[in-house]
């Protein structure tokens, strides 16, 4: 299958200047390739660098060195050292990311929040809205909530809005940070179906799935991280 993501020698550390300059090595010497149709599960104990890796891959964390190359249309784009405009362009059409928390502007209705990434990715307004409605329906979010801003929603409801946003555009590369963390069995199943569907259509997926059932349902392979390095 086509390789969509190539990571070589990735390193990331944090220097905490406000805490006496303590240095934390989050990732080191990491090499990875992920192809279309792959779903790679990152496993490892808390603090092993799983979330840091996903954040480097979406341009949210600044790596110290190494290379992250992403297929964007027919080009390979280097993410390490990329200009902000390049990162934003990649996020619009190529890289989708589900974080553990929903972070959006207050007061915007849920439906609009899900339409937004579809429009940014290039869909026309009617198509984007149709997609958003389908997704919210699929994720069992009651229709009476769609016109409300999600600030007052439960954790599980907010998480589903987050997931709907990440699937509103067919991103070739999907990064999922515990997408099913606060969901019940029925909604977990709905998310698993979305992930499986995207993977079968050729997305390359990297994810952290705490829950073993979800992991075994979606992952095509696993990599274990220990102190920021790939364990054998």
């Amino acid at each position: 299958m086509d390789v969509l993501l190539r990571i070589q020698g990735l390193a990331k550390s944090f220097t905490l200047h406000t805490q006496g300059g303590v240095r934390i090595q989050a990732l080191a010497h990491l090499d990875l390739e992920v192809s279309a149709g792959d779903c790679l599960a990152l496993v490892g104990s808390s603090g092993a660098g799983k979330s840091s890796l996903l954040r480097c891959l979406t341009g949210n964390y600044l790596p110290d060195g190494g290379s992250i190359r992403v297929r964007h249309d027919d080009d390979w784009i280097e993410l390490v050292g990329a200009k902000p405009q390049t990162v934003l362009e990649l996020r619009r059409r190529t890289i989708g990311y589900v974080s553990q928390f929903l972070r959006v502007i207050p007061r915007i209705p849920t439906l609009d929040l899900v339409i937004e990434p579809a429009v940014a990715g290039g869909a026309g307004r009617p198509e984007a809205e149709a997609r958003a409605r389908r997704l919210l329906q699929h994720l069992n979010l009651p229709e009476r909530l769609w016109s409300l801003a999600p600030a007052t929603f439960s954790g599980g409801e907010q998480q589903r809005v987050n997931i709907a946003r990440a699937f509103a555009h067919p991103y070739p590369l999907l990064l999922l940070d515990e997408p099913t963390a606060s969901l019940d069995a029925e909604n977990r199943k709905a998310v698993i179906d979305l992930i499986e569907d995207a993977r079968r259509k050729g997305a390359a997926i990297v994810g952290i799935f705490h829950d073993a059932e979800t992991r075994s349902a979606v992952a095509t392979r696993e990599i274990s991280l220990v102190e920021g390095r790939a364990a054998a």
């Binding site: 944090f14 905490l16 200047h17 406000t18 341009g59 949210n60 964390y61 600044l62 990162v87 934003l88």
Partner: peptide
């Protein structure tokens, strides 16, 4: 830099102080 990167992974001591 990119807004969310500077806020979530600030590099300079002063930025770190502001964010924290």
């Amino acid at each position: 830099g990119l807004t969310d990167q500077v806020l979530d992974d600030p590099q300079h001591p002063y930025s770190q102080m502001l964010v924290s």
